[in-house]
Design a protein around this nucleic acid. Structure first.
Lengths: 347, 347
DNA sequence: AACGATGATTAGAACGTTCCAATAAAATTT
DNA sequence: AAATTTTATTGGAACGTTCTAATCATCGTT
């Protein structure tokens, strides 16, 4: 059994008694060949255990059928959801997405992009790793390979971006907290080397400004975008002179961390301290208390990104419109019961 | 700017005033070429914005440098952790892993495998989707491409498997519960079309048997391997005549679901009902109460799988030893305080 | 000064496909 | 029955690499 030298299109041709050209035509489902011939060829293909060599084909064909998805942190379910959305669209288009993980490491990202490029991908969807240098994608752009950013963007670049409306989401969430009667607010987690951070923080600050929360009553704590980071943020905040009574978190992971830290202190999210997350991952709904969060339609953004990519490939362009996805605030338990305009917020 | 027809090795040769062979040699870092020549060539490569065409190269080279990782559910952090472990060792070996998601869908899996194969992968690491038909990998085997299963196995197949010691893990966990004084035990979640399920359930039953828990006091509830599934399991169990006081869950996701359902009923995991998970995902430690779980060293298994794969590729064989990873029980809060041999277990 | 070594470089034949142009066969028109 | 169109099939030249064998310098040796 096994590999007596990989079968090629010529082996099939011999087996079926036709020319290699005919086999090739059958392979691409051309309508030119006579049905009986096609059947004969297909049988031969089956018999010799042939596997198509896309590398060889791509040598002649203009475009390959694989696109690369470069994700900065696969262990974050958020990105996994994004990936799932894209896969749906690509599958329907007969395109195969290969996922590569950069683990938030720019060097690794470099390697991964190089490999994908060498493999001859038709396009690239990237959520750039933190600390990506501005010029990192110059190479790819000059190679003429279409590329879009998803969820994250780079400060300068003219590469099209698919992202949720971070600013608006933060405004929505902050207004919600203020309307609940909170007067001392915190923004937890994230770090300023991410563009997203500035967008979300910006929305938070704008809402505070507009609804009359003075700068002195806003607390901003940077931190890791993880459960652990969230826990640390809460500790820092509670240690402050006049601690906040509510927090908007950079993302859901941070929010979960904050809730855990609260429970450790025998405080209840919602009742004793309001917390709102961002992204609305699947888990938010099932947590206890259920997490109020800004829903960004992750899978939808994934689909959008995939569509944009397909269009770029099809029209062989490297330019496309940005796409800012609508967001909605999903109010659940963690931001407190709806007791209208309350005032008491003593520590 | 952009693609005035992709640069090739010949363009470089022209630019540098050498032959294509020389360029090729430089590309593979051969020691044969004179250093000054190499420098000249490398400069030319930079100048023309060349990108290596691996497809063309693979036409001549025996082996490609990409291996495929086929994962059945990317949104489960457990598999993401597995992937991360593999990536570590592959990266070190200069091999690029491409990840593809099957979303637990055998048809999708078929497509994904086909694509990977056509792409000319050097090997395949697969966690087979549920419902995979026995013959699904025949094709790959006869193609002579090395393949190993990770975490899951197929009933019949002779493909090497890397998996934790599911049986022993279940025994450990069950013994722990019984030693805590529980006399009516449940096994929650999972479905019998998975080999893993039988292994884990088998361990549970064996421990019950050995430590004298009669069959009448064991409750087995199949269910989805997700939070939701876990919640459903608990409801079913509590509705029973003589409900159990402790449960071993098929995996951590199920365990989290059980804990959530408990909280909904104002019961506390650990105090009112003991729950033990399986896999020990990162989250288990941070949950509240922290989840007692069987640690399987996920990343370690990933590394192991990667190593086995590399060895198979290197020795051009398609056979390898199975590898059963050691497991340990990590006792935390959810299985209850350590109050020794207690007896009271009235509903 | 002629000879082998040794070191660098290169021409040219693969590799497995696609696709154009050419051919052959069958069907249709004159 | 010849000429034309249509329908199927095919040869052969790409595509961008690698690799073997050959060529060409350079350098010691005798």
């Amino acid at each position: 059994m096994a590999s007596r030298a990989k079968a090629t299109i010529l082996d099939i041709a011999r087996e079926a008694g036709v020319s290699k050209s005919t086999v090739s035509l059958v392979l691409q489902g051309s309508g030119l060949i006579r049905p009986e011939t096609a059947v004969k060829v297909r049988k031969a293909i089956e018999d010799v255990g042939y596997v198509y060599n896309r590398g060889a084909a791509n040598l002649r064909k203009a475009h390959s059928n694989v696109i690369g998805m470069v994700i900065n942190d696969l262990t974050n379910p958020f990105f996994a959801e994004l990936a799932v959305g894209m896969e749906r669209v690509f599958q329907a288009a007969g395109v195969v997405p290969f996922i590569a993980n950069t683990a938030e490491n720019p060097v690794r990202q470099e390697e991964v992009l190089k490999s994908l490029l060498e493999q001859g991908v038709a396009g690239l969807i990237v959520s750039p790793a933190r600390g990506t240098v501005p010029g990192a994608f110059r190479r790819i752009e000059t190679a003429g390979v279409p590329i879009v950013f998803a969820m994250r963007r780079l400060p300068d670049s003219r590469i099209p971006v698919i992202t949720p409306d971070n600013h608006r989401g933060a405004v929505l969430a902050t207004e919600h907290l203020i309307r609940k009667g909170h007067r001392r607010l915190a923004f937890f987690g994230g770090s300023s080397d991410l563009v997203v951070y500035h967008e979300r923080l910006g929305g938070f600050l704008e809402a505070c400004e507009r609804l009359g929360i003075p700068a002195a009553d806003r607390l901003i704590v940077e931190g890791e975008t993880s459960r652990k980071g969230g826990m640390a943020c809460l500790e820092t905040a509670l240690a402050a002179g006049e601690p906040p009574t509510a927090a908007l978190c950079f993302n859901d992971a941070v929010a979960f961390g904050v809730m855990l830290a609260l429970r450790r202190r025998n405080l209840e999210a919602g009742a004793d301290f309001a917390v709102v997350g961002f992204d609305d991952v699947a888990e938010a709904e099932h947590y206890s208390p259920a997490l109020t969060s800004v829903a960004v339609d992750t899978a939808g953004l994934g689909e959008r990104a995939a569509h944009v990519m397909l269009k770029m490939i099809q029209s062989r362009t490297t330019r496309a419109e940005d796409h800012i996805g609508a967001v909605t605030l999903v109010v659940r338990e963690s931001s407190g019961p709806d007791r209208g305009q309350q005032v008491g917020d003593a520590a």
